[in-house]
Design a protein around this nucleic acid. Structure first.
Lengths: 262, 262
DNA sequence: GTCTATACACCGATAGAC
DNA sequence: GTCTATCGGTGTATAGAC
């Protein structure tokens, strides 16, 4: 038993060493250049030793993708946790900037997650990918909608949805605040797209003409995003069918919610 | 001279055939799998024949990238041109849906443009990439801001910019409506990011849990985007320093502008 | 568990005959 | 302009010795 545990520890340590080397290689040569041979070279081993820890290339890639998702979610969570509650900067903006910062600090690993899918690699369905995505969307969901009731969110000012879409959104599983009404889910997706799009364009070099002040534009966009979405959520609910709320007099976000500790 | 012209026509035809085959190969196996050998196989030729038309792989890739950018811009322009002027759907939304539709119809070519940069391929600086990007941003710029004066755009309700950012945005070259004040440029970038992010997430398979109703969410997001940006542009200009405009009473977009023909 | 050796595929690029 | 032949490199994966 003790020996088995030792063996397992050794194996875990070796596995970790391989993952580190693989990550290092990705960081230097990009995800597309990842190969077992290259990783083995970096470790001073031969390829066959690696096959003892990972049955094939896909298994290694899956491990790397999983870790990258986790690291990104960790970075966003850490940013939110660090944010001063009295800051003038809304926590959602802080979270978004954490996302952006991680992507810029680890562009190749970000590519691994959100760039072109790797040749001949099929991510395991319902794998850790979905799990990490859920984790991160939970964070943004909280910073975007916490403080509002389900009734308020359900009354958000969006175009009317078709009933199939409503039905589909209704039945999605929920992981964050609990039940999220269809308009809120749609707004959350829109926000994620907005945030992600700006980061992707920057990290993949499509906005280099903006020079080194992109952080400022990003912050503006995220501030506006939060403002615009909150403007669509009624502060006080009108009785049903009197819902002709012109110009809801909302001015600021709801009061900061007590921190949910890590 | 006639012979030279014939020779040139033959050469152009052959080049076109190669490009078509290359596009076909990309559409079936993705951009990363592109190789001269594979294209040659698809044409029933040998590799060396290709070297007669393209000096190396990079030249072929550049040609493909250029054409893809042009096709995308064409698709967006065509969507705008087709839009009925009396439609309830704002032309910006129509343009955005053209962008999305092209991306979904040609996911691999979209990856070629906006996915992970190709291994060992460096796009020629100041090449046709920038040109096509400018062309498309011109379209969106027009649909987003035409009908507003530079003074209105300059007074858009955004966070205050630092002077370096203002200066940088001021000196950017302009290709669309002419001069675009810094707040408008920033809002345009934000809008592009929003649009692009939603498309990228969908095309790269990160929103499959939304099922087949993503078009509806996309349309909602684009409608909201337009509304939110227009809400930030004052309808009437207050005299300077009386600029305490609370709740600018804007309700709708400016009247449709006469079509600028293709 | 790690090694050598090997099979079998792919790729970009060049030389030289026709 | 197109061909054959070839160089020198990449990769995944397996077999079998130690």
């Amino acid at each position: 038993m003790a020996q088995s545990s030792l063996r397992r520890r050794r194996r875990a340590a070796a596995t970790q060493e391989i993952l580190d080397a693989a990550e290092h290689h990705i960081s230097e040569h990009g995800p597309a250049a990842l190969s077992l041979r290259a990783v083995a070279r970096g470790l001073g081993m031969t390829v066959q030793a690696l096959y003892h820890y990972f049955p094939n290339r896909d298994a290694l890639v899956t491990a790397l993708v999983t870790k990258a998702y986790d690291d990104l979610a960790d970075a966003v969570q850490a940013a939110v946790d660090t944010a001063a509650d009295d800051s003038a900067l809304p926590r959602l903006v802080v979270a978004a900037e954490g996302y952006r910062r991680w992507a810029i600090a680890h562009p190749e690993r970000f590519q691994l997650l959100y760039g072109t899918p790797l040749r001949d690699y099929a991510a395991p369905a319902e794998g850790p990918t979905t799990q990490a995505t859920r984790r991160m969307s939970s964070i943004f969901e909280r910073e975007l909608f916490d403080g509002f009731t389900a009734e308020q969110l359900a009354a958000a000012d969006t175009p009317v949805f078709s009933s199939p879409l409503r039905a589909h959104l209704e039945q999605l599983p929920h992981y964050g605040l609990g039940y999220l009404p269809p308009p809120a889910t749609a707004l959350l997706m829109s926000a994620w797209g907005h945030l992600h799009g700006l980061v992707v364009l920057e990290v993949f070099g499509h906005t280099s003409f903006l020079g080194d002040r992109q952080a400022e534009i990003f912050r503006m966009a995220m501030r506006n995003l939060l403002e615009d979405i909150h403007r669509r959520i009624p502060v006080h609910l009108s009785p049903p069918h009197a819902a002709d709320q012109t110009e809801p007099p909302r001015t600021a976000a709801p009061e900061p919610r007590p921190r949910t500790g890590p």
